[in-house]
Simulated assay, not measured.
Amino acid sequence: MNKIQEFNNLHHSKDLLFLGNAWDLLSALTLEKAGFKAVGTTSWGIANSLGYADGELIDFKRHLGIIKTITDNVKIPVSADIEAGYGEDTETIVDNVLRTADVGVAGINIEDSLKKQKGLKDITEQCNLLSKIKTALEQHGYKDFYINARTDTYFQLENPLPVTIERSKSYVESGASGIFVPGLLQKNEIKEIVANVNAPLNVLSLPGLTNCNELNEWGVKRFSFGNALSDKVIDLLQKSAEQLLESKDTSFLYEN
């Protein structure tokens, strides 16, 4: 069984897939060593590690190089966060997806947010993109490659649930393997999406939405923590650096 098949299977077992989010090789190896069954890259974490804000501000080749370094060195499946695809047109985005598949990942996250202004891509445009991505992947030998279609309705709209269900259904019909709805928090809304969308649902860890066992009972199939761990590490690094300078004493570095 190859990593693409292995990754697919993880979304259809009785247990929720708890996905560890990595931003460099060290974090990926650490998550693997801890026992995570798969890792997903976090574009926010990668951007921060290079001194950028999130939002496709890094050259795609540079971003892809980090993803490749991770996939070359871990034994578990890797899913790549490529934001909205790092392209202004469908052809460029599809090519970027194929380049990402070529470095050995088992899947991608691709979102429907506009990058240069607030708002969501037109649903027909996004469905067309997903369909062309699916076709191109299959034509290049990447059958069952996992396309996690992220919709940012809960970050962008006042009454997101109906539009989320509409977009999710359309994305699945257009070739998405699963649906990712960051910002989704309420149990009843999670269960309604699970009941109405025939694909695995991925939700993002947020304050008040943290427990894998509860989410598994609600029908969620994948749970990720995005940039939360990388933010925690960066905060610890910053506080430790400040403590070193303020105390002029390194003793706390050796405390358990």
Rank of each mutant, 00 (worst) to 15 (best):
G219N: 09
F7V: 08
E111K: 02
P207C: 03
V220C: 12
T153M: 03
I67D: 01
R99M: 06
P200E: 04
E125D: 15
Y52K: 14
K68L: 05
S13F: 01
Y86L: 11
G141M: 00
C212E: 08
G119L: 04
L26P: 00
M1D: 15
G175N: 02
N256S: 12
Y52C: 14
K169F: 01
F225E: 03
E88T: 13
M1L: 15
G141S: 06
L161I: 12
A53Y: 14
S240E: 11
F252Y: 14
R99Q: 09
N202D: 03
V163D: 15
T135G: 05
S247R: 11
T151A: 05
H140S: 10
R62G: 10
A228W: 13
E88A: 14
E189I: 02
V233G: 07
I108H: 02
V97W: 03
N227K: 12
W44M: 12
T100M: 01
L204Q: 12
T42G: 02
V105K: 04
S170H: 12
G107K: 04
F155C: 07
E56P: 09
N8R: 14
A136N: 04
N148I: 03
Q139V: 00
E173T: 11
G20D: 06
Q186K: 15
I133F: 03
F155W: 15
E246Q: 14
T41I: 05
A34P: 00
F180H: 08
G208D: 02
L206C: 04
G219M: 04
T71F: 02
G65N: 08
N2D: 15
T153G: 07
E88P: 12
I133C: 08
K61M: 12
R62E: 15
I4S: 05
N8F: 11
R222W: 08
D15L: 04
L64R: 11
Y171A: 07
R167L: 02
T71L: 09
D59I: 08
A199M: 02
Q5G: 14
C127T: 10
T90G: 00
F7S: 02
Y52E: 13
N128F: 12
S113V: 04
N213F: 12
N213S: 14
V97M: 03
P207T: 03
S230T: 14
L10W: 09
H11Q: 03
I93V: 12
G119A: 08
G183V: 01
T124N: 15
E158G: 00
H12S: 14
W44V: 14
K187D: 08
N96G: 03
R62P: 10
I133T: 07
N109Y: 03
L26H: 14
S79R: 03
H12A: 09
E173G: 05
A47Y: 11
G87T: 10
L64V: 09
F180L: 06
L57T: 10
N9K: 15
S170P: 06
Q156Y: 08
D112S: 05
Y154L: 06
L26R: 13
I165M: 00
K121H: 15
I108Q: 02
L204F: 10
S205I: 06
G104S: 04
N227V: 15
F155R: 13
